[in-house]
Design a protein around this nucleic acid. Structure first.
Length: 227
DNA sequence: CGGCTGATTGCCT
DNA sequence: GGCAATCAGCCGA
């Protein structure tokens, strides 16, 4: 079965007409549920950035759950609160933006009441608005790679350290209703790039969707160059 | 398309 | 000092 399935409905192919209410910010209760439930429910939602240059939006097609301090060895919050991860310990419905690999920014949605550091990494999305602006922000990227990966997505939307702690119901960064995804399309895998707790299938994605990030199985780190 | 590697800097131990 | 919730570029098929 190699024939490409004609399956995935392309959000951009909706004749310009997005469903009414698609840009309504999500209510507070959205974030106050078990983190895996929030992760699942994040699929199909819109992450929006209103910048001076214009509005951009992606429909989330892939997300990863991270549990709180002492619970999840893969979480930045595992060892407790630090300057870097402080936003995760704050109120829900805010954006946790972190810098990694010396050059990339990635963004999370903070869940659970203040004090509980659960969050969901937004790993990929389908462009639904402002694709030209996003392409301008990532001039070297192939069209298909515009938002396919957490750092690519953040860069395309123009999100970086300045957005850390942003209230997702207030703007200029918004998380909005979007439109529903088919339950049958949701798949779960292990988290990408995470060695710790690799057995937890906490990555939710829309199976077959072309905007899902390429799955890079964990590269085994060479124990050490030995003779 | 798939696999491999260098890049580059802030954070934590 | 070591490492990181990654990516672009380059190579070969």
């Amino acid at each position: 079965m190699t024939a490409a399935a004609p399956r995935p409905e392309d959000p951009c192919a909706r004749g310009g007409g997005l469903p009414p209410g698609a840009f309504d910010p999500l209510p507070p209760w959205f974030y106050l549920r078990p983190v895996l439930e929030v992760t699942r429910d994040l699929l199909g939602r819109l992450l929006v950035h209103d910048a001076p240059e214009g509005r951009c939006a992606v429909r989330i097609v892939e997300a990863e759950a991270y549990d709180g301090a002492g619970q999840d060895p893969a979480s930045h919050a595992y060892g407790g609160r630090t300057a870097r991860n402080a936003v995760m310990f704050g109120p829900p419905g805010h954006l946790y933006a972190y810098f990694t690999y010396g050059m990339h920014w990635c963004v999370n949605v903070v869940c659970a009441p203040a004090g509980v550091a659960q969050a969901v990494l937004v790993r990929a999305g389908a462009p639904v608005l402002g694709a030209e602006l996003m392409a301008a922000r990532r001039p070297r990227a192939r069209a298909r790679d515009l938002t396919r990966g957490p750092a690519r997505l953040a860069a395309a939307l123009g999100l970086a350290g300045w957005a850390n702690g942003a209230d997702l119901a207030a703007g200029p960064v918004l998380l909005t209703a979007g439109w529903p995804v088919d339950d049958a399309a949701v798949a779960w895998t292990g988290r990408v790039g995470v060695a710790a707790a690799a057995d937890r299938p906490w990555r939710a994605l829309l199976a077959g969707n072309p905007w899902v990030s390429p799955h890079r199985p964990n590269r085994e780190r060479p124990a050490r160059p030995s003779a």
